[in-house]
Design a protein around this nucleic acid. Structure first.
Length: 829
RNA sequence: GCCCGGGUGGCGAAACUGGCAAAAGCGGCGCACUUAAAAUGCGCUGCCCCGAAAGGGGCUUGCGGGUUCGAGUCCCGCCCCGGGCACCA
């Protein structure tokens, strides 16, 4: 006996897979294309190559690979590609610190990722590999940018933006967390800058509606996106300021409370503020207030607990529903980015307006009556956000507010003072970055022609070499004078290149399409290939991308479909989000020193152990705490399977006629078929790999337990071989090397070319069952009974039991409940 | 505050559609093998009480109620932990 030697086994099979290009698949029209098989696109989120892969990567690719293998053995032609999201800040910040060009550090990391993915035995079609930082890739990122630009979906505009002073770049809204830069944690500042945006807000409704088209996404991911898009239905209502002759539209979700508006508030950034107060006594105070607000950080301003502040403008507007004049204020609780940057304040029915009214001693007018309890809670029960009959609202008095809602909006529309409106929390996607390590935005600025797109045949606009990667409030690319100075593609006169680069989320918003045709030099992809493989049938990745990446990719897919380049509206039909692995209960980080290096474990126990362990830790969608003892447990299991294989190797035949087998051999066969059924169902019910692996462990344990009794005869030996081969077949998606090796030794041939086993129904059921007998719902006895015994016989059996009788003693049985094949419950009094 | 998850032995967990709570793993204890240890194999392992033992009884899925012959699972009300959003009118 040689013992389990994962190194030798794993090296051997990795070589086979590499030499034979086992996992490569062909596109329509290419030789080897298997159009008769159903396709399955299995995709894990592409890694950001920084340093070495960590356990999160191991888990993601172990889970994805198990799914890929499972689908292949169910007759699917599985496409399972890999690439690298290689542009981005960490490599660049490293470059600033060490002077090493980001390309070099990134390439080094990619080499390490590639080598380790091969050592893990992940079944990847390497012929499709890509890196988003290569000109061959970003050429087409730029091409897509230009298509969006042509359609007005990419535009340049001056807007208040979030600026990270540490990274010296603007950020997308999605990249600001609690008023801080998502990457470095520095509080962000507001700046007014001209930047590039993608018009994702045009797609807000479709991004919401098409959740219906998805097959299976985790609810919480859908909910998070829904909240992020933040659709609100309401009305836009115009309030007129006669003194300056201006109309101020507001957005409200509560037009039914219009009669309760007692004041009016503008955001400090409101463009008409200047005009309203210029030359008035309020001017100085307003100016000072606005300056203070602008200086405050987003974090301070976002703090709800802070008392409301503001300044009166000395102006008033007219409430269109009752002609009442109400005073105007400026206050920072009103945001310029949402709605119209102005609100009608209804203190009786909005907590923020109420708070403001209290501070400034403004009238509070109730226009919706509450239920009795509601009113009783507080002296006045205000602010009241609920529903009820209207009051103080002219002809609407007495009507329920929900009913009056439509009527009021209708009246406003007829009067030309308002209309139905929808607002979104979602903002357009800010995509330009003042950083080096990204795809250059392919436009030039010409004095005569303005913004001019770089023609397609001049793509890619290659990233120039620079000496200093540090941003100084402008892109480092600006220093590459030779590169910046160019000529206008339209008029030929001198022009200057755009020096901003694109957000890396742009790169990762379409990579799953490029995989389908990654070597294409003529086009971003071939339509036939895209139409064949899309959508991704199973997408796997971390929840941290629930909003950003997934929403951007959905937007890209829709935009590209609208432009006629794709046939699908949704990129990812099914999504699986894996939970995070912790150590000692804490998120792994270098500073805490609790990181786990997959390479170390692969070296010590082999890739099969490492992969199987991360799938066994717990339900894959949940997190789990890394345990070295747990790893050893899994290693012990795989070793046991290996030794079992060595013991039963040789001898004739593994397949058996189930009907002909008896005793322990039959019991073991039945267990094997039970395991087949269990593993198959666990795969189908949301990838419950922890229990699937546990089932294979049970099978191996049973084989050990029954081993002694089975060695003697031919039938027993065959049953043992069948059990071991079945265990290998079932464990193959998790431990592919060991699975392939054991299968080859016991059954011959290649397990990945062998169809997934099917459980024999005859072996899943047995002639006898353990009947559970309860008295008043409490377990009193277990009795062996024929599985087809009639109810009357089961009751008789139950009553005959000594243990049961003890509890019936002197009492009357008032009811008998029978669940055939399972249980009898005697109810006594 | 609002929206999602989750709470079950010493630990991470299982439990299909309401029907034996705790599978498999880890840890612990014991036995075998060994000069010994490691490795390996086998067995025991939720808590409490009675019993020398065999055995018997009770309790137990965050808390409190409810529905049901029967509840970890369904309903109502709470508590705690994790995540997301948050002055979005």
């Amino acid at each position: 006996m040689s013992g389990y030697d994962p190194k030798a086994i794993e090296r051997r099979w990795q070589q086979v897979w590499a030499e034979e290009r086992t996992w490569e698949v062909a596109n329509p029209g290419q030789p080897g294309f298997e159009g008769d098989k159903p396709k399955a696109y299995v995709l894990e989120m592409l890694p950001y190559p920084s340093g070495e892969p960590h356990v999160g990567h191991l888990k993601c690719y172990a889970v994805g690979d198990a799914i890929a293998h499972f689908r292949r053995r169910h007759g699917f032609e599985v496409i399972h590609p890999m690439g690298y999201d290689a542009f981005g800040l960490p490599a660049e910040n490293n470059a600033i610190k060490t002077g090493e060009p980001p390309r070099e550090a990134t390439e080094r990391s990619i080499d390490s990722f590639r080598r380790q993915f091969r050592e893990w035995g992940i079944s990847i079609d390497w012929s499709r590999e890509l890196g988003t930082h290569t000109p061959e890739y970003y050429r087409w990122t730029q091409w897509i940018f230009l298509r969006l630009f042509e359609r007005g979906l990419a535009y340049r505009d001056e807007a208040p933006v979030q600026w990270c002073p540490r990274d010296a770049t603007v950020l997308a809204n999605e990249q600001v967390v609690d008023g801080r830069c998502e990457r470095c944690g520095t509080p962000v500042e507001q700046r007014r800058l001209e930047q590039w945006f993608f018009r994702i807000t045009d797609y807000a409704d479709r991004l919401l509606a098409d959740f219906d088209q998805l097959e299976s996404w985790p609810d919480h991911v859908v909910t998070m996106q829904r909240n992020w898009i933040g659709r609100s239905e309401g009305a836009e209502v115009s309030f007129r300021c006669e003194e300056v002759g201006l109309d101020f539209p507001v957005f409200t979700t509560r037009p039914d409370t219009l009669f309760g508006a007692t004041f009016f508030v503008l955001a400090p950034e409101h463009p008409e503020l200047e005009r309203l107060v210029a030359g008035t006594p309020a001017e100085a105070a307003v100016r000072e207030y606005v300056n203070d607000v602008v200086r405050a950080s987003a974090e301070e301003r976002g703090d709800e607990a802070r008392p409301k502040t503001g300044v009166p403008l000395g102006r008033s507007v007219v409430n269109p529903v009752n002609g009442e004049e109400i005073p105007m204020y400026v206050a920072d609780y009103v945001l310029m980015e949402y709605g119209t940057g102005a609100i009608m304040a209804v203190p009786a029915h909005d907590p923020r307006d109420y708070e403001f009214a209290r501070s400034f001693d403004l009238p509070v007018r109730r226009v919706i009556e509450g239920s009795d309890e509601e009113t009783a809670r507080d002296a006045e029960g205000l602010p009241y956000a609920g529903d009820g009959p209207m009051t103080g609202s002219g002809s609407f008095d007495g009507k329920h507010n929900r009913e009056a809602y439509e009527e009021i909006v209708g009246w406003l529309a007829a009067e030309g003072r308002g209309r139905k409106a929808v607002n979104y929390r979602l903002r357009d996607w800010l995509v330009s970055r003042q950083r080096y390590w990204g795809a250059p935005i392919p436009v030039v600025y010409c004095e005569g022609c303005g913004i001019v797109a770089v023609p397609d045949d001049q793509l890619p606009v290659e990233l120039p070499e620079v000496e200093d990667y540090a941003p100084q409030g402008r892109s480092p690319l600006a220093a590459a004078e030779d590169w910046v100075a160019t000529e206008c593609p339209r008029c030929g006169k001198p022009a200057r290149r755009e020096t901003d680069t694109m957000d890396t989320f742009v790169d990762s918003s379409w990579y799953f399409i490029r995989y389908l045709d990654s070597r294409n030099e003529e086009a971003a992809w071939d339509r036939a290939a895209a139409d064949h493989w899309l959508p991704v049938d199973q997408y796997i990745g971390g929840v941290e991308h629930a909003i950003l990446h997934l929403m951007y990719a959905r937007f890209f897919t829709k935009a590209l479909a609208d432009l006629g380049h794709l046939d699908v509206q949704e990129p990812f039909a099914n999504l699986f989000t894996q939970g995070m692995i912790t150590r000692d209960g804490a998120k792994m980080s270098k500073s805490k020193g609790n990181t786990v290096s997959p390479a170390e474990y692969v070296e010590r126990y082999g890739a099969d152990t490492a992969r199987t362990y991360v799938c066994f830790m717990g339900p894959p969608e949940r997190g789990g705490d890394w345990s070295d003892e747990g790893v050893e447990g899994v290693n012990r299991f795989l070793s046991r399977l290996w030794r079992l294989c060595e013991e039963v190797e040789g001898g004739e035949g593994a397949a058996l006629e189930a009907r002909a087998v008896e005793g322990d051999a039959r019991a073991l066969l039945a267990k094997a078929h039970w395991a087949i059924d269990k593993v198959t169902r666990d795969f189908q019910r949301g990838f419950q790999f922890n229990t699937a692996i546990a089932a294979v462990m049970e099978l191996v344990n049973d084989a050990y337990r029954l081993k002694e009794g089975l060695h003697g005869d031919e039938q027993g030996a065959a049953a043992m071989r069948f059990a071991a081969a079945t265990a290998a077949s079932l464990v193959f998606p998790f431990a592919p090397h060991l699975g392939a090796e054991v299968w080859e030794r016991l059954a011959g041939g290649r397990v990945w070319e062998t169809p997934w086993p099917q459980a024999d129904p005859e072996l899943l059921s047995s002639d006898t069952v353990t009947l559970v007998v309860q008295v008043n719902g409490k377990l009193r006895d277990r009795i062996e009974a024929a599985s087809d015994a009639p109810e009357s016989e089961l009751i008789e059996l139950a009553r005959a039991s000594e243990k049961v009788r003890r509890h019936l003693d002197g009492k009357e049985v008032v009811k008998e409940i029978v669940v055939p094949g399972k249980l009898v419950n005697l109810v006594v009094r």
